[in-house]
Write a protein that binds this DNA or RNA. Structure first.
Length: 225
DNA sequence: CGACCGATCGTCT
DNA sequence: GACGATCGGTCGA
C-alpha cells in the first residue's frame, strides 16, 4: 500500500446505510477493514484506510456501554439509526470514534482503532502537533480521532453525510490477512473480555496494542465463511 | 523488551 | 467520588 497524494473522489463510493444495517456487528467490523474513513471539515480532506476495528455487541456484551440495555444521555446515540457516529471521551483526553450499526434501538457499535494515513497528512500533522508522519499518527483510537479532527462534538453525526463518512475504493483485502483477537482494554468485562471481537489486517504497521504473536494474545486467522 | 505511571474530565453512582 | 474501549513517557532487567 502506498500513499496517493491526489485522490479521485468520484471513484470512491460512500458506504450506504444497508451496509451498517446488518445484524452481525462482528461481520460489519470485519467488512470495514480496508475501507476508507474520510472527514472533510472546513473543506479539508483527511482520510485513512481502516486496518483495525472492534465490535461491541450492545445489550448482551459486558464490554459495551449499552450492556444490559443501559440508556443514558451519552449512550443514547448508540440506539440511533445505523450509520450514526458515536464518539465519547475516554480518560478525559481521548475522543474514541465508533460506528453505530443494526436497527434503531439496537445499540451495536464498532470502534475504529487504527488507520493507514491516506489523504491530508499535512493537515493531520497540524492537528496533532507533529512535525513528520510516523507509524503512530493514526495508530490507536485516540490518535486517529485527533488526526481526523473527530471529537465528541460529532457524536450523533450521520456517516451518510459529506463531512464524515466511510468509503469503498475497491481495495481488495486477502482473507488470509484478517486476524481476530480479544479486544484491548476491556478487562472489566469478565468473560466477554476474551471474545474474539477485534479484527486487524495483520500486515499493517499501524496496528495498536502489542505485536501479534500467534497464540499468547489469542490471535486467530479467520476461518472461511 | 515489560511494568508502571500520570494526565485529565465527562459520566454515572 | 470513582472510574475509564488511551497514550507517551520512564525505569529497571
Amino acid at each position: 500500500m502506498h500513499i496517493n497524494p491526489s485522490i479521485q473522489h468520484n471513484l470512491i463510493k460512500k458506504i450506504d446505510q444497508e451496509f451498517y444495517l446488518r445484524s452481525s456487528v462482528t461481520r460489519i467490523a470485519r467488512d470495514l477493514l480496508g475501507k476508507i474513513l474520510v472527514t472533510c471539515f472546513n473543506g479539508q480532506y483527511t482520510s485513512g484506510r481502516i486496518v483495525e476495528t472492534e465490535a461491541y455487541a450492545g445489550a448482551t456484551d459486558k464490554a459495551s456501554h449499552a450492556y444490559g440495555g443501559r440508556r443514558t444521555a451519552r449512550t443514547e446515540i448508540m440506539y440511533q439509526d445505523a450509520g450514526t457516529a458515536y464518539i465519547y471521551l475516554c480518560y478525559g483526553i481521548h475522543h474514541l470514534f465508533n460506528v453505530v450499526t443494526n436497527k434503531k434501538d439496537i445499540p451495536h457499535a464498532i470502534l475504529i482503532r487504527a488507520l493507514e494515513p491516506f489523504e491530508g497528512i499535512d493537515i493531520m500533522l497540524q492537528r496533532t502537533g507533529r512535525t513528520k508522519p510516523d507509524d503512530s499518527l493514526t495508530k490507536g483510537p485516540g490518535n486517529l480521532s485527533r488526526a481526523l479532527g473527530l471529537s465528541t462534538n460529532y457524536s450523533g453525526y450521520s456517516l451518510l453525510s459529506d463531512e464524515l463518512y466511510i468509503a469503498d475504493d475497491g481495495f481488495q483485502i486477502n482473507k488470509n490477512s484478517i486476524v481476530s483477537t480479544p479486544r484491548i482494554g476491556v478487562d472489566y468485562a469478565g468473560e466477554d473480555a476474551s471474545l474474539p471481537y477485534r479484527f486487524v489486517l495483520k500486515e499493517s504497521k499501524y496496528l495498536s496494542g502489542k505485536k501479534l504473536s500467534s497464540n499468547r494474545d489469542g490471535a486467530k486467522i479467520l476461518d472461511r465463511e
